[in-house]
């Protein structure tokens, strides 16, 4: 189970622009580095991040080997309706992590 830190407001006014910040623990092994035994370490990265707001994708990103370990992603969404934000990270070796946050829009 990967560890995540998510900052998302729990309440907002309709139409407000919200900043969402996410951080996930992941080695982001590039696939180019040599290990202690001299052999190349196999690639192990997160390939895709997406954020769904009440089921609809509002932000997504493709990640590549040059991105650092423990990737931090911050983005904005417009508060539209009360509901849930679902964050999904998918990557090599079947890595998949989903977290969610609820938001009340008045």
């Amino acid at each position: 189970m990967a560890r995540t830190l998510i900052h998302a407001p729990t309440t907002a006014r309709k139409g407000e622009v919200l900043e969402i910040r996410t951080l996930i623990a992941h080695p982001m092994e590039t696939g180019y580095r040599a290990g202690a035994d001299g052999r190349t370490l196999p690639r192990d990265i997160i390939r895709r991040f997406s954020c769904r707001y009440n089921g609809e994708v509002v932000f997504s990103a493709d990640l590549y080997p040059a991105i650092s370990a423990n990737p931090y992603l911050a983005f904005n969404v417009v508060a539209d309706a009360s509901g849930s934000l679902t964050f999904t990270w998918e990557g090599d070796n079947g890595f998949a992590q989903t977290e969610s946050a609820t938001i009340t829009v008045s």
Binding site: R3, L5, I6, H7, R21, L23, A25, A69, N70, Y72, A74
Partner: peptide
Amino acid sequence: RDDQQNPGML
């Protein structure tokens, strides 16, 4: 400074 950005907080 920002605990949501600081990977050490993991």
